[in-house]
Design a binder for these strands. Structure first.
Lengths: 217, 217
DNA sequence: TTTCAGATATTATTATTTTAACAGAAAAAC
DNA sequence: GTTTTTCTGTTAAAATAATAATATCTGAAA
C-alpha cells in the first residue's frame, strides 16, 4: 500500500465506495474483466480523477497501461467495506419497516444475517419476520448476553430509542443502523449509521420546490 | 432577504435543513420560544457558525441580541423544504418495503399523500397498502394520465427500474424517490432522491471494520 | 527490440466547505 | 436612561475536497 495506513479516510470518500462496488458488480455480471478509470467515469458520471484518487487512498489497485482488473478491484472494495465477513443483526421494532428489512433477501446474501427481532407490541410478538420469531422487547437484554450481535437495526418510535440504545451499547452491540428520528448519543466504541427516511423525502420535496420555482421564472 | 435569490444552494446545506427542522420541532414541543445559534449548536453538535451561515443563505431570520424565534424559524424552514403543501405520491413495487412506506403514518401528516400503489405480482394486486388498493402495473400509465402524481416511490428490483422510469417521466411525474439499486437517468425537469439502503448498511459495515481495526492496534 | 499509445499514481491547482473573527444592533441589567 | 451583554449577519481565514496536470510505467505492435 502506498499510503499511510493510519490516515483517516473522509466520509465523503467512504460513501462513494458502495457505488463503485455496485458498478463493478454490474461489470462482473456482464463478463467485463478490465476497466479504466476513464471508462468507469463515463459510466458513473464522475471524474476519472476522483475515481483514481478515491481508490488510491486504499492502495494501488490499478496498472498503468492496463487499468483496473474488475474482479480484483471488486474484491478489494468488498474487503475495504468489511463485506468479507458475516454480521449478526437484530431488529428492534418489528413494525412495517422492520419486517420489510427482515424480509429483504439481499441482506443475507451480503452477509448480514438476522438472528432476532424484538417488539413491545403483543399483537406481533410470536409472529415471524423473515426467518426469525419476533420476541418481546423484555427478552432483548438476555438475548444480547447469550448471542453475539454485531448490528442492531433500530426502527422504533423516537421516544423509545433513548431507552433502548444504552441497553444495546452495554451489552456489546457495536453497530447501530438507526431508522428512528433521533440522534443517538453513543460512546466512541459504537458506530451509528443513520437512515432517516423522512429527511430523505424532505430533500426530495426541496428539490421539487426548486424545480417549480425555476420553472416559474 | 439578504442574499442573491438565484444563488444555488449547495446540497450539503440542504441536507442539513431537515435536521434543523427536527430539532426546532422538538423545541416547539417543549414550549421553547427562542434559541440562539450557540445553544442550538450545543444541542446538535455542530458549530454555531455553520448554523448561522446555513440559515443566512435563505434569509435573515434571527435578531441580534435575541436569537431565533423557534416557531418562526420552524415555519420558514418548512417553507424552504417545500413542506407547506401536499404531494400526491404513488408506490411502484408494493413489496415489503413499499408497503412499509405506505403504512407509515407520518408521511401523511407531513403532506405526503399516497394515492396509488402498483405491482406486477398478481398475488398482491387487489390487496391494500396503507389506504390504497394495489393495482396491476399495467394500470400505471392510465392512472398517471388521469391523476396528478408529484412523487413516485420506486421500490422495485433494479432490472425493472429502467423500464418504469421513462413511463413516469413521460407522464408528468417530477419527483422520484428511488429505493432501487440503480442510478436513474432522468431529464433535467425531474428530480431524483436516492434512498439506497444497501449503501447505507455498507457504510455501517465499513465503520465497524474501522472500529475493529483500531481496537487491534 | 524498440517504439508508442494507454493509463495509473501522484503532485499541483482550484473550488468548495467549514470555522473563526468581528462590527454592530437589540435586549437585558442596572 | 445608560451601560453592558448577547447574539446575529457578514467578512475573512483555514481546512477539505475535487479537478487538472504530469511523470512514469505497461503491454502490445511494428
Amino acid at each position: 500500500m502506498s499510503k499511510d495506513e493510519n490516515e483517516k479516510i473522509s466520509l465523503a470518500v467512504v460513501k462513494r465506495l458502495p457505488r463503485y462496488y455496485r458498478y463493478l458488480g454490474d461489470l462482473l455480471e456482464h463478463g467485463i474483466t478490465r476497466i479504466s478509470s476513464g471508462d468507469l467515469s463515463k459510466k458513473m458520471g464522475v471524474t476519472a480523477s476522483q475515481i483514481r484518487q478515491d481508490l488510491n487512498k486504499f492502495g494501488c489497485f490499478g496498472q498503468r497501461g492496463y487499468g483496473y482488473n474488475v474482479e480484483m478491484l471488486y474484491d478489494e472494495i468488498k474487503k475495504i467495506l468489511g463485506l468479507d465477513r458475516e454480521y449478526n443483526m437484530i431488529i428492534i421494532g418489528a413494525g412495517n419497516l422492520g419486517q420489510a428489512l427482515a424480509n429483504y433477501p439481499n441482506f443475507r446474501k451480503r452477509g448480514f444475517k438476522f438472528i432476532g427481532a424484538f417488539d413491545k407490541n403483543p399483537d406481533i410478538v410470536g409472529k415471524t419476520a423473515g426467518d426469525v420469531v419476533i420476541m418481546d422487547i423484555s427478552e432483548l437484554e438476555p438475548f444480547l448476553k447469550e448471542n453475539r450481535v454485531d448490528i442492531a437495526v433500530l426502527s422504533i418510535p423516537k421516544y423509545n430509542a433513548p431507552k433502548i440504545s444504552p441497553i444495546l451499547v452495554e451489552n456489546g452491540v457495536r453497530g447501530i443502523w438507526n431508522f428512528s428520528h433521533i440522534d443517538l448519543n453513543t460512546p466512541d466504541n459504537v458506530v451509528v449509521e443513520n437512515a432517516h427516511l423522512t429527511e430523505s423525502v424532505m430533500t426530495l420535496s426541496y428539490k421539487l420546490s426548486e424545480l417549480e420555482k425555476n420553472n416559474k421564472e
